[in-house]
């Protein structure tokens, strides 16, 4: 079987608008990530710097 060509594979790709669930996944991931980094940074200060 011939090896698929990247250019052809990308050409086949169809534009799909972002679904509300994807938007939710992205927004919630980033917000949760930032919140957890802040909590962990604070915990790190308390546990390891004092």
């Amino acid at each position: 079987m011939p090896e698929p060509k990247l250019a052809e594979e990308l050409k086949k790709m169809q534009r799909e608008p972002l679904l509300p669930i994807e938007k939710k996944l992205i927004t919630r991931s980033i917000l949760l990530g930032l919140f957890l980094v802040a909590v962990l940074a604070w915990t790190s200060q308390v546990l390891f710097r004092n």
Binding site: S29, A41, F48
Partner: peptide
């Protein structure tokens, strides 16, 4: 303290990096 930083790496890679790149 180094192990603890590992937790933060998980948060950064999976929750922040992934979402932004996606």
């Amino acid at each position: 303290s180094m192990m603890f930083h590992g937790l933060c790496a998980i948060v950064a890679a999976y929750l922040i990096y992934w979402a932004v790149v996606y």
